[in-house]
Design a binder for these strands. Structure first.
Lengths: 142, 142
DNA sequence: TCCACAACCTGAAGCTACTATAGAGTCAAG
DNA sequence: CTTGACTCTATAGTAGCTTCAGGTTGTGGA
């Protein structure tokens, strides 16, 4: 199977496949006489795994770790659960951050209910007066 | 005031200040004899505004738009409200996406309750079996 | 006056996860 | 034998910075 077909079955672009190879997420393919990449079922499986992890918003670092662990089938899967739990924690943390953010934005929004002159706009004044202590820093890649 | 002091009062790094100047968010400073940037109160105000917008997770594009609008104090502030409402909508949308994601992750997590061999791990099998239709695409910069 | 050292300067590269482009080569059908 | 789809490599761009290299300026103590 050539790269276009692989990309099609995994629903990603050809460029993404080549990028994963360069990043070491996908092992280098064998080459045909004309230097075209040749793939088999194991590449399909691996690429689909990677794309599914990306659909779950995992970083390449997290995916790399999962792939390493999956490559030792006899080992205990506790480490897998750990990676996964940490990822869930990242997501939960980001949701908390964004909910704080939404509350702050909604509060600010109420400072300008009517349309008026810009220099009297409650939103702009609200932003100018903010103390940075209000909001959290970002802790995740999400 | 020199760049280090400006950065300190706005609680960001010197590099960030120079970056904002290069991006055109912050107007170019006048220079001292030794080519050091010199800032005044208006720069402090503007930089604090920018940093507060960033704390609200606005993109540089959104901030640029707000700054433009703020530079025409006599105009109607309806456009400001519009930018703001759209940003709130972005945040709400991202929260929805992440909550879907969390649900999917939590569901997957339940497929491996006990520690066992990697090749029997319900999480890894679950990821491998996923259909990409499950999850939404990202629509915002958040 | 000299020296050390902090703070400043510019320009370029690195980060994440891709996407897009240019220019060239390969292959199957008509 | 030509057309056109597909592939190849290498490079640059995206957002919002951070880090680094290599050089200049300003300030305080000896």
């Amino acid at each position: 199977m050539k790269i276009g077909e692989l990309a099609a079955v995994a629903r990603c672009t050809v460029e993404t496949v080549r990028y994963y190879e360069k990043e070491g997420l996908l092992p280098a393919a064998t080459r045909s006489g004309g230097n075209f990449r040749q793939y088999g079922a194991e590449h399909v499986e691996r690429l689909r795994f990677i794309r599914n992890c990306r659909a779950l918003d995992m970083s390449h670092g997290e995916i790399r770790r999962l792939l390493e662990l999956a490559d030792h089938p006899q080992d205990d899967c506790g480490a897998v659960n750990e990676v996964f739990d940490q990822h869930i924690a990242h997501v939960a943390e980001r949701i908390r951050e964004l909910e704080q953010l939404r509350a702050a934005l909604t509060h600010l929004r109420q400072r300008c209910c009517d349309t008026q002159a810009v220099d009297a706009c409650g939103i702009l004044h609200g932003i100018a007066e903010m103390e940075n202590a209000t909001l959290p820093e970002r802790h995740t890649h999400l």
